[in-house]
Simulated scan of single mutants.
Amino acid sequence: MSKIDLLDQKWIDLVFEGKNEAYGAYALRQDTSKRNLFAMLALFAGLIAIVATFLIVNVASEAIARAQAEHETEVTLEQIEEEAEEQEEEEVVYEVEELEQLVAEETVMNSEKFTAYEMEDDAPEQVTKTQDEVAQSDVAIGAIDYDQGSDEAEHVLKVNEKVVDEVPPAVEETKVFDVVEQMPQYKGGDQALMDYLNKSIKYPVIAEENGIQGRVVCTFVVERDGSITDVKVVRSVDPSLDKEAVRVLKAMPKWIPGKQNGSAVRVKFTLPVTFKLQ
């Protein structure tokens, strides 16, 4: 079998020998080689364009990165030089100020004169008394010696009075604590508190007729004397139940007050009041 060249037009003549060559297929077969050549050239051109674009992008990226690195290096060197100059200027100023201060101190020290203490000839001779002589005398020994009726004595009395007057008055503590060392407690304990609530609560007629029940959470302040103040509802169930819970808590007898550092203080207390139909 002989080798067939696809670009050669002879095989087309062999195929269409004795046939209608005016038919369109013959014309298409004649242009096949041209179309194949154009397709191969277009493919090679596209590949070359892609490779060239890739190389150009890489070269441009490297050039931009190199330029940025050089710019950053220049800026960093300029900043380092400026900082070094500023530090040198600050150090020079500090050294000059320190030297001026040292010179001023030395000048003051040199200008001061030492004055020797001279004993006066007319000064009274100090007499030292023995312990027995002091015990027999009527003179009182203290931090300040003064004669009764003298100006010095009056001055000392005024100083004492002034010190007494300057003592700040005791300020009543008004802070309300949430937690203290010894929390307030109902007299008789929790069981006595439950008994009081069960005995004192009068179920509202409206709530009872409508079948309303639930737990009303209230807060109040136990004062230093154990009395109850500032009763508030923090979780409501029904206005009638809330009103009854507040009434009962306000009517409670005095509690045992809470204590902090051994002293009675005001303490905020939270207590739920449960309303339940039988």
Rank of each mutant, 00 (worst) to 15 (best):
Q79R: 15
A192L: 03
S33V: 11
E166G: 00
D178I: 01
P239N: 06
I212T: 10
E125P: 01
L102H: 06
F16D: 09
F177S: 08
V273D: 04
V180D: 06
R29Y: 15
L99F: 06
L77K: 14
I4T: 14
V237K: 00
L14R: 14
E81Y: 00
T229F: 03
E120K: 14
G189R: 01
G189M: 01
L197N: 03
A60Q: 14
F269A: 01
S2A: 10
Q185N: 04
A251D: 12
V92S: 03
A153I: 01
G149Y: 05
V221H: 01
L55T: 10
M183K: 08
E90C: 00
D8Q: 05
F16M: 09
V222T: 07
E223I: 01
L277C: 02
N36S: 11
A84N: 00
E83V: 05
E82S: 11
A69C: 02
I50Y: 10
V59E: 09
E78H: 02
E125L: 10
L241G: 00
K268L: 14
K113V: 13
V139Y: 11
Y117N: 05
D238I: 00
T115W: 00
Q213N: 09
E88L: 07
K175D: 12
Q278Y: 09
T107C: 02
A39S: 14
L37W: 02
V139H: 10
R35I: 11
V127F: 07
P168Q: 06
F177Y: 15
E166L: 13
A264S: 12
V167N: 04
L41Y: 07
F38C: 02
A22F: 08
I144H: 09
A123M: 13
W255A: 06
V171G: 06
N20L: 11
D230A: 13
D147C: 05
E172I: 15
V59L: 15
S2V: 05
V163C: 00
Q260S: 06
E105A: 12
D225A: 10
V103Q: 13
I4W: 01
T270H: 00
H155I: 02
A84R: 11
M1C: 03
D13V: 03
N110H: 07
